[in-house]
């Protein structure tokens, strides 16, 4: 049972059980296809989830609600810039990163210079970003360059390429969070902002970097998602707002900040996709499906937080 003391273990356990329950119906025939689909869609949740995790780690009140709009804007602008041309892949990627950095800087400018709480600042920023996305392209679907389309939809050694990208980002994030000065500073700010300030942590610099990191990962996820699904759409980021927060919480990171982990985000991302697949496969009515999804998520969070024993 020692493994279950890891905060992220429960999300993997839940994902594994749901996977087994789904395979059970199809008598094992679907295991390969289901795993591949789960890895693909979990990859997008993981990318936005990691960014949101760093922000949430900064402590109470820190959250980025501009994730969906950033995804939409990055996908829209990058695909419009590339216009299907192979030679424009690098500029498209640079535009994506540019959108992320610009949104992150603007978010923190609102939070710091105008002293607006992050939840309001990022929400109002998301309206501005979404309007720019609508204005720039009116939702017209432009195809990605063929090389990007085939890269995002194919696999290397049976592992989807987008999952490999997300895995590389995850490893970097793990090193950043657990082994770098920056990561320790983020956690220190989340545990106690006054204490971190006293200890000489450059609070503003660290927070700024974190909001930029979150927006950049959201932009990257939007870029990959629009290449994967054959074009950007104005509503493509919608479900990733709650998703980015849900995977952090289900993954066992502390909602109050200061204590986070990267592996749990993978478990939670897989779980969030598989739970919908399982209930679809069992042919539940939509109403029951939503109720069951809610109940199961509550159960996983309760189990995951129960490990702390006496701690509130």
């Amino acid at each position: 049972m020692k493994a279950l003391n890891r905060p992220w273990a429960w999300s993997f356990l839940a994902a594994g059980l749901v996977w087994l329950a789904t395979i059970w119906v199809t008598k094992g025939a679907a295991s390969g296809g289901l795993t591949e689909a789960a890895l693909t869609f979990a990859a997008f949740s993981v990318l936005v989830g990691i960014g949101q995790m760093f922000v949430i780690t900064l402590g109470p009140g820190n959250i980025d609600l501009s994730v969906p709009a950033t995804m939409t804007l990055a996908g829209t602008l990058a695909l419009k810039l590339m216009d299907g041309a192979e030679g424009m892949v690098i500029p498209g990627l640079l535009a994506t990163l540019g959108v992320g950095i610009a949104v992150g800087l603007a978010n923190y400018a609102l939070i710091k210079a105008l002293r607006i709480p992050p939840i309001i600042a990022t929400l109002s920023m998301s309206f501005i970003i979404q309007s720019i996305a609508i204005w720039s392209n009116r939702g017209i679907r432009i195809k990605p360059p063929e090389s990007l389309a085939s890269f995002t939809t194919s696999s290397t050694l049976t592992v989807p390429n987008v999952a490999l990208v997300a895995l590389a980002v995850s490893i970097a994030a793990w090193v950043l969070l657990n082994r770098s000065v920056y990561g320790r500073q983020v956690a220190a700010i989340g545990q106690s902002l006054p204490a971190a300030r006293m200890a000489g942590v450059p609070v503003d610099g660290v927070r700024l970097a974190t909001y930029v990191l979150c927006a950049t990962l959201a932009a990257l996820a939007g870029f990959l998602l629009s290449c994967f699904s054959g074009g950007a759409a104005l509503n493509m980021g919608n479900e990733y707002l709650l998703m980015s927060i849900a995977v952090v919480v289900i993954g066992g990171s502390a909602v109050a900040g200061g204590d986070s982990n990267v592996p749990g985000i993978w478990g939670a991302g897989l779980f969030m996709f598989l739970i919908v697949s399982m209930l679809n496969t069992y042919q539940f009515q939509a109403g029951y499906r939503l109720i069951l999804t809610g109940l199961i998520i509550i159960a996983v969070i309760l189990l995951a937080s129960g490990r702390k024993g006496g701690r509130p």
């Binding site: 789904t22 119906v25 199809t26 025939a29 679907a30 295991s31 390969g32 296809g33 289901l34 591949e36 689909a37 789960a38 693909t40 869609f41 996709f273 598989l274 919908v276 697949s277 679809n280 496969t281």
Partner: peptide
């Protein structure tokens, strides 16, 4: 996303 999830089964 929904179709990708149910298709394997």
């Amino acid at each position: 996303k929904a179709v990708a999830g149910i298709l394997p089964s």
